[in-house]
Design a protein around this nucleic acid. Structure first.
Length: 506
RNA sequence: GCGUCGGUAGCUCAGUCGGUAGAGCAACGCCCUUUUAAGGCGUGGGUCCUGGGUUCGAGUCCCAGCCGACGCACCA
């Protein structure tokens, strides 16, 4: 083999030579394993670690993570994802063919070993290998770096490469791997919570004629068989409430939604949304569910790996505040100041209310309505202060077209959002079950849409028909699973909790 | 979309004032039967993101573009 051959060519040659030796790396289907890496270490004594005689034979398989060849003996670490075990190979015990095969292995190859346990001179619990099986050959080099005391010397640093080739990240980056696997545990814990409380998990259409339930631009596609333009859903809401109308009083869905927006450390165009609806439940009941859900999930999930930021305390009830009261506390603007758009603009001008971060004066610009302005004030002044888990109650009607009106406060709805560490984590309301009210809200939204608001809610006659057939009073809530996973793993970037985040093609 | 920073060997990175492209690890060859960031001796490996420009000469300076990170904007 010439020395300027590519690594891949060299490894293809090794593959052929392995096959000649009778070790076809892709010819094996099953390898029986007696233990995982972690299990081996934990049950070391039990498996006869120090006994001279009668040690049980153990079988272990994984990816070759390091090699130290010393002429006629060698050490290697084998990693099974769960952990890493050192293996010791000796030529005169392995036999000629297996020893030659071992010489042809590279870091990244999968191997199975059979042998007994022992402790090395330097005290590492290891496998004394008597049989070697080659289970796959890596034709590409893996960026597996050297490692000592859990610290990686070399590895995959480039975040772009980590996201584009996530399998390499999972192999080489223990921290990233743990975050992604924790996300999986979080989803399981969420299901567990609802399943044990009598909720039915359902799956509703992703392809929709009109995408409703949220304000967002859509992804548009085409269904050939019906020659129909369809959109990918932007929320789960409307179909789930139609199920409530079908007298299934507790439903939830965990599903992907698609919003045609930019990417940021908190946004990905497709993300996983949890929504649940419970008939005969009011806002307080929904708050209790949120509190219990976070308590349950946080309890099952390991603490964040990056411990510079401690996980918020979910053991007790969340703080409850009124939206307008919080705005007044932080801006001085009273509910009277914010009673009409004109008054609000005048008050903003007179008080010279400034953005605490940028120092710029707040002016009512693009917000065509009072509700939009109020939510902007909330975002700028109140959100960053909501560190401890907090429910903000009472959202303006203009931005809440699916929430029941608050009978005691005209212009506001029975809606709350939950905040943790200064970030929105859930959005809930007492659902409109008055079909006349809902139709008026939709008609107003359609008006906004005709004035150029691409994100205004479209009319949905099927949904209105379901409401007209009768929907019980219902509380509902939505939580972005990805952001929940960020929160519970201490991740600063949404992409760290997404296996394959959106990337521009190269 | 705007701004700042970045893109050099398989990986992690250095590269001075514009003067023959560098290191460690990985790879390849040889030695080595308890090593663990194994060690010793030797060898090979580059579209310096792409395309223009300035210059005797460009990884380096200029322009445009691509991709990324961060910030802003957008985002109920």
């Amino acid at each position: 083999m010439s020395q300027d051959a590519s690594i891949r060519d060299i490894r293809l040659d090794k593959l052929a030579r392995l096959r000649e030796l009778g070790f076809d790396p892709f010819g094996v289907e099953r390898f029986y394993r007696t233990d995982s890496a972690r299990g081996l270490i934990e049950r070391f004594a039990e498996l006869g670690g120090e006994l001279e005689e009668g040690k049980p034979v153990i079988c272990f398989a994984g990816r070759l993570a390091s090699q130290r060849l010393m002429g006629k003996a060698a050490f290697a670490h084998i990693s099974d994802g769960d952990g890493k075990v050192q293996a010791y190979f000796k030529k005169d015990e392995l036999g000629e063919a297996a020893w030659d095969a071992f010489q042809l292995l590279d870091i990244g190859d999968h191997v199975g070993v059979e042998g007994t346990l022992f402790t090395t001179k330097t005290g590492e619990k290891s496998i004394h290998v008597t049989e070697l099986t080659v289970l796959s050959k890596a034709l590409q080099p893996l960026p597996l770096g050297k490692e000592k005391d859990g610290h990686q010397w070399y590895g995959l640093e480039d975040v772009e490469q980590r996201y584009r080739h996530r399998h390499l990240d999972l192999v080489t980056n223990a921290e990233a791997r743990e975050v992604l696997l924790t996300r999986s545990r979080i989803v399981r814990a969420v299901r567990e919570y609802f399943d044990t409380r009598g909720f039915f998990e359902v799956e509703t259409p992703i392809l929709q004629l009109e995408a409703g339930g949220a304000a967002a631009r859509t992804f548009n596609t085409h269904y050939n068989a019906y020659d129909l333009n369809v959109k990918l859903r932007i929320s789960l809401e409307l179909y789930l409430k139609r199920i409530i109308c079908g007298d299934v009083p507790k439903v939830y869905e965990i599903g992907r939604v698609f919003r045609n927006e930019g990417v940021s450390n908190r946004h990905n165009p497709e993300f996983t949304l949890l929504e649940w609806y419970e008939a005969y439940a009011n806002l307080e009941d929904v708050m209790t569910t949120v509190e219990e859900l976070f308590r349950h999930v946080a309890g099952l999930v390991n603490q964040p790996q990056k411990s510079d930021k401690s996980l918020p305390d979910f053991s007790g009830p969340w703080r409850r505040v009124q939206l307008l009261e919080e705005i007044e506390r932080h801006t001085g603007l009273t509910s009277d100041d914010l009673s009409t758009l004109e008054k609000a603009k005048r008050a903003l001008g007179e008080r010279e209310v400034k953005n605490p971060v940028t120092g710029k004066r707040i002016v009512a610009g693009a917000e065509a309505n009072l509700g939009g302005l109020i939510e902007k004030l909330l975002e700028v002044f109140v959100e960053p202060t909501l560190i401890e888990p907090t429910f903000v109650v009472g959202y303006p009607i203009e931005t809440s077209p699916l929430a029941k009106k608050d009978p005691e406060r005209p212009g506001f709805t029975r809606r709350f959002e939950g905040y943790v560490l200064g970030r929105e984590i859930c959005n809930a309301f007492s659902e409109i079950n008055d079909p006349i009210d809902q139709r008026e809200r939709f008609e107003h939204q359609v008006g906004e849409r005709s004035r150029g608001d691409e994100e205004a809610h479209p009319m949905d006659e099927e949904f209105l028909y379901a409401l007209e057939c009768g929907m019980p009073p219902t509380g509902g809530c939505g939580i972005g699973i990805d952001r929940m996973a960020m929160l519970l793993t201490g991740s600063e970037h949404l992409r760290e909790v997404l296996m394959f985040p959106m990337m521009k093609p190269n």
